[in-house]
Design a protein around this nucleic acid. Structure first.
Lengths: 151, 151
DNA sequence: AGTGAAAAGGCTTTAAC
DNA sequence: GTTAAAGCCTTTTCACT
């Protein structure tokens, strides 16, 4: 799918505020509202816009602590990878999980209610997953940036 | 601010689809639309809802590659930290940046157009930042999970 | 493709219970 | 917290450029 500068401008505006009305968007993009609407619909159907969400303040909802966990699995087979992915999917505290190159195979970001919760999570959920060879956790002390894709 | 189960249900629903109408939301939460509306406004004002955004498909907008970069700074002073934060803020390819405990001080996630772009970014932007002692990059080979806060 | 206007529907807000 | 109702704004469509 081809995206021109109007499409990118719409995506930028919607990243900033997905509740902006078509009028606001069209003013910002420099088109009238009909083509804005058509372009947005087109991008939704093409999967460029995957969905609309809210950003929730983690501390205010009682999940103040985050961790970065790096780990290595015994097996690197496709089956093992998919099984691991399914198990991560089932752990709500896992916000992101990536298969990566380098010393460790996986990098996870977790959000927990506190150190107590973190200890429980590691012991009862993560380390129960078979085939984990090694892991290393880092507490997130501060978030310096949390941004959107540059467009 | 106190959040009851209705508030949490609203947040969950909005995380899934921030464009759901009040009717849909109220049906899901089990309240009528007026209190839903009032609760959402209350959470917006309290900062629990930080904003409304879209999820953009990175590959379809021409940013297919991601990296996890870990690095250490010479100085651990508050000034150095803030200066570093400001410089990261100015690099659009940096999606997330965390100050963490452990072997490395910072963990970044970057999104780039390709290996060429990545090389340029590291050389011209990141390594130009003074005071970087050591760094290690890992390519993201696959995203296993990218979820919302569990509520 | 874009414009502008018109119809339909949903949202916000208020008020009564 | 619920329901209902008014006005307004948005979304969506359509005829035209």
């Amino acid at each position: 799918m081809k995206l021109d500068r109007h499409d990118l401008a719409l995506l930028r505006a919607l990243q900033r505020n997905a509740r902006a009305s078509l009028q606001e968007l069209s003013a910002e993009v420099g088109l009238s509202s009909s083509p804005c609407w058509a372009r947005i619909k087109r991008m939704e159907e093409a999967g460029v816009i995957e969905g609309y969400t809210i950003k929730v303040n983690a501390e205010l909802v009682g999940v103040p602590d985050q961790l970065i966990v790096q780990l290595t699995l015994d097996s690197h087979s496709e089956d093992a990878l998919e099984a691991f992915g399914r198990q991560l999917e089932a752990i709500p505290e896992v916000l992101e999980a990536y298969l990566v190159s380098g010393d460790y195979d996986y990098v996870l970001r977790l959000a927990v209610k506190g150190t107590r919760d973190y200890e429980r999570l590691l012991r009862e959920q993560l380390y129960k997953i078979p085939g984990i060879r090694h892991s290393k956790s880092s507490f997130v002390l501060r978030r310096l940036k949390s941004g959107n894709l540059a467009l």
